[in-house]
Amino acid sequence: MTASNNDRFDSVQDDALVEIRDVVFGYGARPVLQGINLTARRGQVVAIMGSSGCGKTTLLRLIGGQVRATQGTVRVAGESLGELDAEGLYRLRRRMGMLFQFGALFTDITVFDNVAYPLREHTDLAEETIRDLVLMKLNAVGLTGAADLMPSALSGGMARRVALARAIALDPMLVMYDEPFAGLDPISLGVTGNLIRRLTDTLGLTSLVVTHDVQESLKIVDYVYFVSAGVIVAEGTAAEILASDLPYVHQFVHGEADGPVPFHYQAPAYAEDLGLRSSRA
């Protein structure tokens, strides 16, 4: 594997559901992404990894069209997000599902109504059909029994699975997961990982998983991108990543405290802060 090899996907462009080319983005004057290239092909589970604050969520926001790239193009299903108007964007979003880090369930309605929400908003289906569909989606995440609970009565892992059922309610082509493994116990971790893989395969989805749980995600993903300092620093299949001896990847995969990713957030040397002359400069 190499640090960047977009070329190998250009030949199979029709296969690519999400294509990000040379994307630059920043909040205000602060740059976050500085030339990202990324491709997710149909039917794949693609992981985006990187340390906290490196811009992974921002990347998902770009794909969902919540923010627009300052430079470069983001294409989803062949449509360039920068050129879509609000209506076009909404049309595209109906075919995307997004799983937020904390579920983002609507707290004033039941689990059932949460999953039914996109169906009721976007279709004219009869209430009975909606019921069947909702129970089917809840069944897919193993939570049929929780249908009548309020979201406040759910544990974190359950809430996230309900959110997943909601995200796939309209049978999207693309599902984005923002840190689906964060804060889960080992069992829920395995359940969630398997769920993502299974749903991707059975529903014919494409999944984009943002995570820093290397071990769990490497079990289920087809392809991995590493983001650092606003660019993709490494990419490859799960096997390639595990075998990689790139220092950055090695540090990340094996969870070493110090390495190319420094422990300290960029700051003037500590000594300078204390008013002493820095010997390190």
């Binding site: 609507f106 707290t107 959110a163």
Partner: peptide
């Protein structure tokens, strides 16, 4: 405010609901 803080409004937007 709480709907916004818990990303419910963003979730809605991502479901193509304004």
């Amino acid at each position: 405010g709480l709907m916004k803080a818990t990303e419910q409004l963003t979730a809605m937007e991502m479901m193509a609901v304004n």
